[in-house]
């Protein structure tokens, strides 16, 4: 039962934390959250379609269909989150209702829900086909789903209390989330044999091992990998450096304009 809790929790946690960060952003730019609830529903529906067709999709591109699809999803998510981060910096000083933000956040949620949702559905499908341990695995999965959603909700209400600090925290966390996605996308490209794998740049498994609870949490949050390759490290840091450079540039510009 514990396995099923963790499997579902892992996928749910990634989506629910992402949604909670975007809810905080939507408070800042005053986007109505109703749109995002719709995005969650639409994403869940598309995930059902994806899960039903995963068998076929896996066969595309000489068996690399799954990886290519995930790479497209992860890279688009990382870029959309990067854009959200760049936009939020310049919009905080003038809180206006912005349709672009609404569209952007909804799109991120739809894509994220589609991917994570499909993995959860595929897991539940395999549970239903396995009559022996159906009951315990099913309830374990539901429990995982519940914990995942709750953690997201608690995270949102916690951040909402922090007011100004919540923006900074969200900015930092979303930056790390997007960097983690890029690193994961590169990992899929190597798995499909489309990008050359290399020896890991470092090995931090003696500090935090990936299967450990902390390792899993860090993986879900910031894409932690104990043995990353050269390409993964380069792109991970690129997706961190760009938003922070823009933040610094904007702060200097704003400071100069004020004087």
């Amino acid at each position: 039962m514990l396995d099923s809790v963790i499997i579902v929790l892992r996928e749910t946690l990634e989506a629910s934390l992402l949604v909670s960060f975007l809810f905080v952003y939507s408070n800042i730019v005053r986007v109505r959250k109703l749109w995002m609830i719709w995005a969650i529903l639409i994403g869940s529906l598309i995930s059902l379609l994806l899960a039903m067709n995963m068998s076929e999709i896996s066969e595309w591109f000489d068996g690399a269909g799954q990886e290519i699809l995930f790479v497209i999803v992860l890279i688009s998510l990382a870029i959309l989150i990067l854009i959200s981060n760049l936009l939020i910096i310049s919009s905080t000083k003038k809180a206006i209702v912005n349709r672009w933000h609404m569209l952007l956040y909804s799109l991120i949620i739809i894509i994220a829900m589609t991917m994570e949702g499909a993995e959860v559905i595929i897991y539940f499908e395999s549970v239903f086909l396995n009559a022996e341990r159906l009951s315990s695995n099913f309830w374990g999965g539901i429990l995982g789903l519940g914990i995942g959603v709750s953690v997201g909700a608690v995270n949102y209400y916690f951040l909402a209390q922090l007011k100004q600090l919540s923006l900074t925290l969200c900015f930092v966390m979303l930056t790390l989330v997007s960097a983690g996605m890029v690193s994961q996308a590169i990992s899929y490209l190597m798995q499909a044999g489309l990008v050359e794998d290399s020896y890991p740049v470092w090995d931090t498994s003696f500090l935090i091992s990936e299967p450990s609870l902390l390792g899993q949490l860090l993986y879900a949050l910031i894409g932690y990998e104990a043995t990353p390759t050269h390409n993964q490290v380069v792109f991970y840091f690129l997706f961190i450096v760009v938003p922070f450079c823009y933040l610094t540039y904007y702060k200097i510009k704003f400071h100069n304009e004020k004087n």
Binding site: M54, S55, D62, A64, L129, M190, A192, G193, T229
Partner: peptide
Amino acid sequence: NREKVIMGGRKAN
């Protein structure tokens, strides 16, 4: 550093 869903009755590279 690998993870891949392999659907029932299918193969994966």
